[in-house]
Computed example of a mutant assay.
Amino acid sequence: MILEGQLQPGEKINEKLLTTQFGVSRTPLREALKVLAAEGLLELIPHRGAVITRQSEAELAEVFQVLAALEALAGELAALNATEAEIARIATMTAELRRSYDETDRPTYFRINQAIHKAILHAAKNESLAKSHELLAYRVQRARYQANLTPERWRAAVEEHEAIANALATRDAANCATLMKNHLLRKFASISAQ
């Protein structure tokens, strides 16, 4: 609900409404809210409840710049270090990504998109890179989900993924790095334009 914009930044969580909607008691709901707070999607305010976090454009710009650099490195290393099976798996997921786009299935698209980025990070074979990326990725998860709201940006994102898969398949490390970096920077540019 947060990622899809059903709950807006600054909005207070209505625990009673959510317990009814999900058919759970307050205890599991509050545990879920703690997890979401740890991921930076909401803030727990003592004696006031949970509020959806707001992110400034400056904060997003900083995080996206660092993530773009990390993803560029991941693309370069993956092109050099990935097994043929990992490259084939990324190609398969990229075809599934295209299919979810063609079916305008945003939740599936986002899930596959995240899986592709994780697979590329894994294929880079650099644990420090993966851990650094994971720490920052949570901070912009909502923004990444909402980056492809326009049909034009969504289509471009699919085409960017296809180019990345091709660069991996041809083991073009420099091109893969550039494509990965530009992919993230274009996501941020589309968010800034909203």
Rank of each mutant, 00 (worst) to 15 (best):
D105A: 09
Q55K: 13
G49A: 04
E103A: 15
E57M: 12
R54Q: 14
A115D: 05
S132W: 11
S128A: 15
D172Q: 03
Q141M: 15
S128P: 11
A169N: 07
N148Q: 15
P46D: 02
L179Y: 07
F64L: 04
E134K: 10
K125L: 05
L70N: 07
I90L: 05
L184R: 08
I120V: 10
D105F: 05
E96L: 13
N175P: 03
H117N: 09
A95K: 14
E84P: 13
G49F: 02
V63T: 14
M180Q: 10
A50M: 00
A68P: 08
R106E: 09
A82G: 04
L179T: 02
D105H: 08
A123M: 00
E57D: 11
N126R: 04
H183D: 08
L168R: 00
T178W: 11
A95F: 13
E84M: 09
E84N: 12
V66G: 10
Q141S: 15
L184A: 11
R153H: 15
W154M: 08
I45L: 08
L44S: 02
I112Y: 01
E159G: 13
R99T: 13
N81S: 01
M93F: 09
A85D: 08
M180S: 07
A177E: 08
L136Q: 08
G49S: 03
T83G: 11
I112T: 01
A78P: 03
E134M: 11
A82H: 01
A157H: 12
Q146P: 13
A157E: 14
Q55F: 07
S100C: 06
R153E: 15
S100W: 01
K181F: 11
L44D: 03
T53R: 06
P107E: 02
P107K: 05
I116H: 02
T108N: 06
N166P: 10
A91F: 01
A91R: 10
A130I: 06
